[in-house]
């Protein structure tokens, strides 16, 4: 005879515990940590290259990719320490991967840590890495319906960057529609259109990071 019993247990993954440990570690170092999530080709690494050159703070990068260390090499060429994670097929980073990568960085020497997730708008959304904020990066050629199509990411993203605005004259894209949909998903989201090529709109993004660093250092 089967015995029924309502469990009602929220599934707590091991990932949640490791993410909490990462968050405590980052806080001890007064670090502001951003988890950058976007499609393949949205311009995550190019955004970081431009950000590192213009930010004027000590930044480190954890690079997530399925294969290769091409992106970490690009980041090092831009002048920042970078650790590459190759997930060997896994669709998103998890907190354990970030924990191992962070141990290879001198966290005490940094103000801000960027974690570039595997290119994907679905899987990274539900996996906490111990970051302060999730940053969703979408780009003009992808189409303005991305926020509407991927609610799991956009309800969690504190910041949405709309990249490649230099292509707006050539592509059918409504920044207003994308921004409005982002705010429907998360009314408090900071939505910033910018271009990593012309650096138009970059200053509010850099100022957002600097404000986050000031808050983290006050807490740390």
């Amino acid at each position: 005879m089967a015995q029924g019993k309502a469990a009602g247990a929220k599934v707590v993954s091991k990932n949640v515990e490791i993410a909490a440990a990462n968050r405590a570690l980052f806080r001890r170092h007064g670090l502001f940590v951003l988890n950058l999530i976007g499609s393949p080709g949205a311009g995550k690494t190019t955004l970081l290259e431009g950000t590192l050159k213009r930010l004027g703070l000590k930044a480190g990068v954890i690079e997530g990719d399925v294969k290769t260390s091409i992106d970490a090499e690009r980041i090092r060429a831009a002048g920042a320490p970078a650790v590459q994670i190759e997930t060997q097929g896994a669709c998103h980073l998890d907190a354990a991967m970030v924990s191992r990568a962070a141990s290879e960085l001198d966290l005490g020497a940094l103000d801000v840590l960027f974690i570039e997730n595997v290119g994907n708008l679905v899987c990274p959304a539900g996996s906490d890495l111990g970051e302060d904020v999730k940053v969703a990066l979408i780009s003009v050629p992808e189409g303005d319906e991305k926020p509407a199509k991927y609610p799991a990411l956009f309800v969690r993203a504190a910041v949405v960057l709309i990249n490649k605005t230099d292509l707006l004259p050539y592509v059918e894209y409504s920044v207003e529609r994308a921004s409005a949909d982002c705010r429907k998903m998360n009314n408090d989201a900071v939505v910033l259109p910018l271009s990593s090529k012309t650096y138009e709109g970059f200053e509010p993004w850099l100022e957002y990071i600097r404000a986050g660093v000031r808050r983290a250092q006050a807490k740390g």
Binding site: M1, A2, Q3, K10, N187
Partner: peptide, 19 residues
Amino acid sequence: YQREVRRGMDIIVREVEID
């Protein structure tokens, strides 16, 4: 749209029947 998500983000084991 100024609202807070109360449910819908989680995965919950609602019921387990054992023999």
